[in-house]
């Protein structure tokens, strides 16, 4: 039941992101979409991910996006000519992604937690600890790669910002 409510909100807001003419409205619909996705995480007993989704995406990244939209005053640029030269790429990626989802829908089966991490165990200690444990043991390499990537992005942003002076 809740799943369908969140699905409808997510799909509607995702559609409105690309359909609405006003960039700020688009951005706000994207925030709504993130909320709906956070709702899915809560249904899946992933409160930590849900909170992070809202905190990082809706609370930080989207605020920056809104800030940029306001700074550039994009809302007044209403008569942008429509540009279709990327349509070919869009169609191909749409087909690929749709095929992928289709494949998962047919072949995939519900994954159950394995080993000592049964659902009951996760519920007693909360998934925050388990996520933390796995991030620093089993998945330490991808975690560190992501950190280095972010560090490079920070340095890059700094260099681009410096050029103006």
């Amino acid at each position: 039941m809740l799943f369908y409510v969140f699905s409808i909100i997510a799909i509607y807001s995702a559609l409105m992101v690309i359909l609405s003419r006003n960039p700020l409205t688009s951005a706000l619909y994207l925030v709504l979409c993130f909320f709906a996705i956070a709702g899915f995480y809560v249904i899946l007993d992933m409160e930590f991910l849900a909170a992070m989704q809202v905190l990082v995406y809706a609370g930080a990244i989207m605020v920056l996006v809104v800030l940029v939209i306001m700074l550039l005053n994009l809302a007044n640029a209403k008569n942008i000519p429509k540009d279709f030269h990327q349509m070919f790429i869009a169609v191909i990626s749409f087909i690929l992604l749709f095929f992928e989802i289709f494949l998962y829908a047919i072949k995939g089966s519900g994954k159950v937690p394995t080993g000592i991490y049964t659902t009951a165990f996760i519920k007693t200690i909360g998934n925050t600890q388990i996520i933390g444990e796995f991030l620093f043991t089993k998945y330490i390499f991808p975690f560190e790669v992501a950190s280095i990537l972010l560090l490079i992005a920070i340095i890059g942003a700094f260099i681009f910002a410096r050029r103006k002076f």
Binding site: L24, V31, A51, V54, G59, M70, G126, T128
Partner: peptide, 22 residues
Amino acid sequence: IGILFILALTSLGVYGVVVGGW
């Protein structure tokens, strides 16, 4: 995740101001 819940909500307070201003 009480604390994260609070942080997530406080981070949303900015929208009221920004959207109102815009």
